[in-house]
C-alpha cells in the first residue's frame, strides 16, 4: 500500500491504467485529489482477480476528492473496486463515479464506504455506481456502506445495473448500423463519461482511451 500525505492546498492527480491500485491518501486543508482508475485490458491472463483499494481521509477543511473508476471486463475477469472516503472535518466535497461494463462471465464488485463524522458539517458527498451487463453470465455486486453522522450535509448515493437500451439498439439498426456496432457505440458512450474526467495533465492517456472507444466504429 502506498500512503501519501497531501499538504494544505496541494493537488494530486493520477491515472491508473490497467494497474491495480492500493492507495491511502490523507488530505490536509484545501487539498485536491483526483484519481481515475481504468481497467481496460483485453488480453489479461484468465482468472486473474484485480483488487483496487482507495482510502481517502479528509483531515482538513475544504478538501476536494474526485474518484472515477471504469472497468470493461470479459471472459473470466474479475475486478473489485473498493473506496473508503472519510470526511473527518467539515466543508469538504467528494465525488465518486464508478462504472463497470461486464461481458461473458466477468464479475465486478464495488464496495463504497462513505463516512461523514459527527462534526463534519457542510460536507457534500456524492457516490454513483452504474453498471452494464452485456451477457447473461456476467455478474455485478454493489455494496454501498454509508455512515453519515453529521446532519447539515448533502450526501447522495445511486447505483444501477442494467442492460443496453434495446430501443436505442433498434433505432441504430433501423439506420443500417449492425447490432454489434450499435452495441459498441452504446458501450463507448457509457464509458466516455469516465474517460473524459481525466484532466489535461494526462491528456495523452485520455486521447488514447477516447480513440480506443471510438476506434471500434471507424
Amino acid at each position: 500500500m502506498e500512503t501519501i500525505l497531501l499538504h494544505s492546498n496541494e493537488s494530486f492527480e493520477r491515472v491508473f491504467l490497467n494497474e491495480p491500485v492500493d492507495l491511502h491518501i490523507v488530505q490536509e486543508a484545501g487539498s485536491r485529489v483526483k484519481i481515475v482508475v481504468v481497467d481496460f485490458e483485453t488480453s489479461r491472463p484468465r482468472d486473474l482477480e484485480i483488487a483496487n483499494r482507495i482510502t481517502i481521509e479528509q483531515a482538513g477543511e475544504g478538501c476536494v476528492t474526485e474518484i472515477y473508476g471504469l472497468a470493461y471486463l470479459r471472459g473470466d475477469e474479475r475486478v473489485t473496486t473498493e473506496t473508503h472516503v472519510h470526511h473527518q472535518v467539515g466543508s469538504g466535497r467528494s465525488e465518486q463515479l464508478i462504472k463497470f461494463v461486464l461481458d461473458d462471465q466477468a464479475q465486478g464488485r464495488f464496495v463504497g464506504d462513505l463516512k461523514i463524522a459527527p462534526d463534519a458539517q457542510q460536507v457534500e458527498a456524492h457516490q454513483t455506481n452504474r453498471n452494464i451487463l452485456l451477457s447473461e453470465g456476467a455478474q455485478m455486486r454493489t455494496q454501498p456502506q454509508l455512515e453519515i453522522y453529521a446532519d447539515d450535509v448533502k450526501a447522495t448515493h445511486g447505483a444501477s445495473t442494467g442492460q443496453l437500451d434495446e430501443s436505442a439498439l433498434f433505432y441504430m439498426q433501423q439506420r443500417g448500423i449492425s447490432k454489434e456496432k450499435a452495441r459498441q457505440l452504446l458501450v463507448g458512450a457509457f464509458m466516455r463519461e469516465v474517460i473524459e474526467a481525466i484532466g489535461d495533465q494526462h491528456s495523452a492517456v485520455r486521447e488514447q482511451l477516447l480513440h480506443t472507444i471510438d476506434g471500434v466504429v471507424e
Binding site: S167, M172, L186, F190
Partner: peptide, 19 residues
C-alpha cells in the same frame, strides 16, 4: 425518436451512411 446520450450525431450518421 430515441435519445442516445454519448453518441454524437456525427459519429452516428457517419457510421450509418458508411454501412
Amino acid at each position: 425518436p430515441v435519445e442516445i446520450p454519448g453518441v454524437s450525431m456525427t459519429n452516428f450518421m457517419r457510421t450509418a451512411l458508411n454501412e
